[in-house]
């Protein structure tokens, strides 16, 4: 049970202000999810293969980077922020991620990709935003989440967004009713889940489908058939983001679009602070319908 926001910038002039525009959106969703928060930022600029990582305070990131550099034969640099670290890797991301997890199982890899960076923390969403400098971050688009934990524990790793593969991630509002069944199904197919969170199961489901060759839209169409319960999902991709509501569609979602941006939020009040909102086209996504945005503009598919 949660609040979701997403912002996709069309106007390059706004890229340096991405975080500054998203922070007030996240602030408006605090009441929907006071337990924890997280955000994914898609950086602008050239590709920079990065692992967004989390570990307990005191973890020796330099040692981990040195090990990774030696094992992969490519340079690794480290940027630490609080209990997070961004490892910029020179090698193939998939290899780097597997190597890191094998050597340091206590590290939680929150995301891997050439543009995505994910940060999350427990407690007041705005404190999380400040800790990780959301306001100062630039980028092309981002999604963020505030969580009111339903059944699984309030932990940093259990906060959204959940990675669903290279440069993709997912946030969820709702409650799945068959996630234990799906969890064992997915684990039998090689997905590794790191929390008890039902939303992570939805993320793993999409990862599995896309590993099997589905496009994002195909994976979401499959999700509509297999996920039971109530959900509004927002999925971040390298080039944009997608929104999907379950066929009953009780959990809220609002979309808004101007010439400069496309925004998604659980409630309009999160969109209200955006510049030019008074001229935005505003609508509610239809149930059971996949909406996705990319650099080519919006398309909606049944």
């Amino acid at each position: 049970m949660c609040g979701i926001v997403g912002l996709f910038l069309k106007d390059e002039a706004l890229f340096p202000r991405l975080g500054a525009l998203m922070a007030p959106m996240l602030a408006e969703m605090t009441e929907r999810g006071p337990d924890s928060a997280g955000f994914a930022i898609y950086r602008d600029g050239p590709p920079l293969p990065t692992l967004s990582c989390l570990a307990a305070p005191g973890f020796d990131w330099d040692a981990a980077a040195a090990h990774l550099a030696q094992a992969t034969g490519a340079p690794v640099t480290v940027e630490t922020i609080s209990d997070h670290a961004l490892l910029r890797v020179g090698s193939d991301l998939r290899t780097a991620r597997a190597t890191l997890i094998a050597a340091f199982p206590q590290v939680n890899v929150l995301a891997s990709g050439e543009a995505i960076e994910i940060f999350k923390g427990i407690g007041d969403p705005m404190a999380v935003a400040r800790t990780f400098g959301l306001e100062g971050r630039s980028g092309t688009h981002g999604i963020a989440h505030t969580r009111m934990a339903t059944e699984s524990a309030v932990t940093t790793a259990g906060s959204h967004p959940f990675s669903t593969g290279p440069d993709t991630c997912l946030v969820h509002n709702g409650s799945l009713s068959n996630h234990f069944l799906l969890r064992s199904f997915l684990e039998a197919r090689g997905e590794t889940l790191q929390t008890e969170n039902d939303s992570e199961v939805a993320a793993a489901f999409l990862s599995w489908r896309m590993r099997e060759g589905d496009t994002l839209d195909q994976a979401l169409a499959a999700a509509l058939k297999r996920l039971d319960g109530f959900y509004t999902l927002t999925i971040g991709t390298r080039d944009g983001f997608a929104v999907l509501r379950d066929p009953i569609a009780c959990k809220p979602a609002v979309l808004a679009e101007t010439d400069q941006w496309v925004a998604m939020a659980s409630e309009f009040r999160a969109i209200a602070p955006l510049p030019g909102v008074e001229n935005a086209r505003i609508w509610e996504p239809e149930p059971g319908t996949i909406y996705s945005w990319g650099r080519d503009g919006m398309r909606a598919a049944a």
């Binding site: 049970m1 949660c2 609040g3 009441e31 929907r32 999810g33 009111m148 009780c250 959990k251």
Partner: peptide, 14 residues
């Protein structure tokens, strides 16, 4: 069995 105008604690708060 469900309320007509809210579902879940985040909406119940409102």
């Amino acid at each position: 069995c469900r309320h007509p105008d809210w579902t879940g604690p985040d909406d119940l708060e409102i």
